[in-house]
Design a protein around this nucleic acid. Structure first.
Length: 469
RNA sequence: GCGCCCUUCGUCUAUCGGUUAGGACCCCAGAUUUUCAAUCUGGUAAGAGGGGUUCGACUCCCCUAGGGCGUACCA
């Protein structure tokens, strides 16, 4: 039962765009399983499609994994660099008669495919049955795998269970293209073998490929790795995740103010669970995660739940770090914070972080700190500034002037003032808040006064009082 | 068309033949209340449909329906 060989997992994205959260979750599962077993987590860039692969996409994958905190063990492998090795593997197959040259033209191919379909089996090329070597100089050709026509291929998948495919349904796939370039199905097999990958954890869109790849492993006499095909993530409506669902790339989640640890927790919990545990540390995730416990059905992305998880991690986050992150939000919004303002933000973060689900909301919550006088007062709160309220606020101002400028003292001063006036806080809070924040959200009044500072606070109150006709 | 996979509250899930089918998010109600929140308490809500197997099925088998993936000289 216990495999003496150390576990080696890998994440193998093709660099054709940004790193999607679906890919990020696949990487996470590979990472967690490696950590769980004390094995290695490798990264391989599948860039054999030269037309679609870009350096920008490679960078996006690196950046995305880095942000997610999923550091690969060892050097990154680029599949394209192994082209000669891949060709060598095809030579082996050719030599052993498990591959053949196919000279079919595009039209012939179409016809053959149609006929195969009508006959109820996958594509076979007529060239498969010619003598080996025959027509080896007939011009442009591809090299196809000579798959078995009968029998079955069974994949004992760690997630999906035993899945059986009839070999007649598995086509003679192309190994080497007309230009001599290796194809995906050949390259993955060779690379996974060469890299010593023991567990292939990937999206279940590859389940069908697993059978065809298993055949190649067999033909090469290589040991088959364990497969685990995890379901894809769908959008809230159950359809395949796409742009219209709000976000796809991990970078977009970062821009929307989500914390990487929150995304890790949320993504790990999507399609996998450990009893009733909802929130867990990276250490717990690694200790608990077993690929066998991953569900078979696709899960939908739920923004509300993600927000909830994110709120939890924001509350738990270090204040200094949060301050820096929220400052970045201000900068991204085109209003970078000067040192003095940054300091004011830092003082407010401990209180603000209790009330925001994302970094963006935190920045919104901090907005009241940076208004320039005289501040604009929204229509609704401005309605609080009745003559009576103004008079009372003028009297309150006198009390505040002599108070120690610290939240508890200020809070006490306001309360005792209310008592003196013989009114409830409901008569004092709203107008004072209107003067202080103009209607923007803020913490308790004492705290708000404290965070704003004596000079700024009294100034804003004076500005409001001066609105009296 | 053919092949393969999937199907428990609205959503993510627990359950591994015997439970009042549990938890979380959302939602609703109440508490708190000087804004926005946060917090606390309570509540609504589920085994796609139909056949079997069994003393007993959410759980095992079959069919149907719905969804997904594949069927490339993409990965």
């Amino acid at each position: 039962m216990s495999d003496p060989k150390p576990v080696v997992t890998r994440f193998a994205p093709s660099p054709t765009g940004s790193l999607h959260i679906g890919g990020a979750r696949t990487a996470l599962f590979n990472y967690l399983y490696a950590k769980h077993t004390g094995g290695k987590f490798l990264l391989r860039i599948e860039d054999t499609d030269r037309a679609r692969s870009t350096d920008a996409a490679v960078k996006a994958i690196f950046d995305g994994l880095d942000w997610m905190g999923l550091k690969p063990d060892g050097e990154v492998t680029f599949q394209y660099a192994g082209m000669e090795r891949h060709k060598g593997v095809v030579d082996q197959l050719l030599a052993s008669g498990r591959a053949y040259r196919c000279y079919m033209s595009a039209d012939e191919l179409d016809a053959a495919r149609e006929k195969a379909r009508a006959d109820g089996h996958a594509l076979r090329s007529p060239w498969r049955d010619r003598e080996p070597g025959e027509g080896s100089n007939l011009g442009p050709h591809v090299i196809r795998f000579a798959g078995p026509k009968d029998g079955e291929t069974m994949i004992d998948d760690l997630v999906q269970g035993r899945v059986v495919f009839a070999n007649k349904d598995l086509d003679d796939l192309v190994l080497l293209r007309t230009d001599g370039a290796p194809t995906y199905n050949l390259a993955v097999v060779a690379d996974d073998h060469d890299m010593g990958v023991t567990h292939i954890i990937r999206g279940d869109d590859h389940l069908n490929n697993a059978a065809r790849q298993a055949l190649i492993y067999q033909a090469l006499g290589w040991e088959l790795p364990a497969f685990a095909h995890i379901p894809l993530i769908h959008g809230p409506d159950g359809a395949k995740l796409s742009k219209r669902h709000g976000a796809q790339a991990v970078g977009e989640f970062a821009d929307m103010g989500y914390l990487p640890e929150a995304l890790r927790n949320y993504l790990a919990r999507l399609g996998w669970s450990h009893g009733d545990d909802e929130l867990f540390s990276d250490e717990q995730a690694a200790a608990w995660f077993d690929i066998k416990d991953v569900n078979k059905g696709a899960a939908r992305l739920d923004w509300d739940k993600l927000n909830s998880v994110n709120a939890h991690y924001i509350k738990a986050a270090d204040d200094e770090r949060l301050t820096g992150l929220v400052a970045e939000v201000f900068a991204a919004r085109g209003s970078a914070l000067a040192p003095a303002r940054l300091e004011r933000l830092g003082a407010a973060i401990p209180f603000l972080k209790e009330r925001g689900k994302t970094l963006l909301e935190l920045a919104d919550q901090a907005g009241f700190l940076f208004l320039s006088r005289p501040i604009d007062i929204a229509e609704k709160p401005a309605g609080q500034l009745t003559p009576e309220a103004m008079d009372r606020m003028a009297r309150l101002r006198i009390q505040l002037e002599t108070a120690d400028w610290a939240a508890p003292d200020l809070e006490a001063a306001i309360k005792s003032f209310a008592e003196t006036e013989g009114v409830g806080l409901g008569k004092i809070g709203p107008p004072l808040r209107a003067a202080l924040t103009g209607g923007l959200p803020s913490p308790d009044l004492g705290r708000t006064l404290d965070l704003l500072g004596r000079e700024e606070s009294l100034g804003r109150i004076d500005d409001a009082l001066s609105r009296r006709a």
